[in-house]
């Protein structure tokens, strides 16, 4: 099923936001201190919420993406302190405004088109919402918090064992049990690949490309059902965050 245009940018934003929160970011220093992805890093707030306007728009844009830890921490603090207004996500709204302002400056300067700017803003807003949403409690009848990670193989094996145990003692319709087992088997087949098997799969794909004399496709050539604007927006965002 093709990924809708907006969903792609939202997912990209959420993914980048999550990675940046985990400190999977370029440090930009000549001899970068090594910060391992997923390694716990003490919280160090970025200075002030108001970004000086004299900073170049590109840097302001980048700063917005690099300050998610501040959004996360302040949202959690406001919630824990019972501060008024945290439900309205004022920090997120401020970040969105700063990001939009930087984008508008880049649009005026002719660096990106308005359409690309809107898509980049879409990605940022999704990341802001995701991070805020992950740090506020649920409310009555609110949709469930869904774990973005797929069920792991171990969990699926456990599910399968539990289902077998239940099936023995209950009178669940056989057709229903067959369907659940089929779903489990499908997921197990997909997720149960070991690292070695995944590598083997990649190796096989590479070999097939090489044997057919074709180059490995670039990002631009991949057959995403994405418009040129979306590709441009995604590439622009990656360039900004990698300092290109």
């Amino acid at each position: 099923m093709p990924v809708p245009r907006r969903n792609f940018m939202q997912l990209l934003g959420i993914s980048l936001g999550s990675m940046l929160l985990a400190r999977c970011q370029r440090t930009g220093t000549p001899e970068p201190t090594f910060v391992m992805c997923y390694e716990a890093v003490p919280y160090t707030p970025m200075p002030g919420t108001a970004t000086p306007t004299r900073i170049a728009a590109l840097d302001r844009l980048r700063l917005c993406w690099l300050r998610f830890d501040e959004l996360e921490q302040k949202t959690a603090d406001a919630r824990d302190n019972g501060d008024d207004g945290w439900e309205d996500n004022p920090i997120g709204a401020a970040r969105n405004a700063e990001h939009r302002s930087a984008l508008d400056a880049l649009i005026i300067a002719g660096r990106i088109t308005a359409a690309v700017g809107d898509l980049v803003q879409e990605a940022f807003s999704a990341a802001v919402y995701h991070i805020w949403r992950s740090n506020v409690p649920m409310t009555c009848y609110e949709p469930m918090m869904i774990d973005y990670a797929p069920a792991g193989a171990a969990s699926l094996v456990r599910q399968s064992d539990t289902l077998a145990e239940i099936a023995e003692g209950a009178t669940i319709a056989p057709d229903t049990l067959t369907k659940v087992r089929s779903a489990l088997e499908h997921d197990l087949a997909y997720y149960a690949l070991t690292d070695a098997e995944v590598q083997a799969l990649f190796d096989q794909l590479l070999k097939e490309y090489q044997e057919s004399g074709k180059e490995i496709p670039s990002f631009e050539e991949l057959e995403f059902t994405l418009t040129p604007d979306v590709k441009a927006a995604a590439q622009f965002l990656l360039d900004v965050l990698t300092g290109k």
Partner: peptide, 25 residues
């Protein structure tokens, strides 16, 4: 996770009935 009423706030979940009447939840 424990939830409390969000009516009236930014996270309210207004309920719209089939004929257009809106309620706090």
């Amino acid at each position: 996770g424990f939830a409390y009423c969000a009516a009236g706030g930014a996270r309210a979940y207004y309920a719209l009935d089939p004929i257009g009447n809106l309620r706090p939840c």
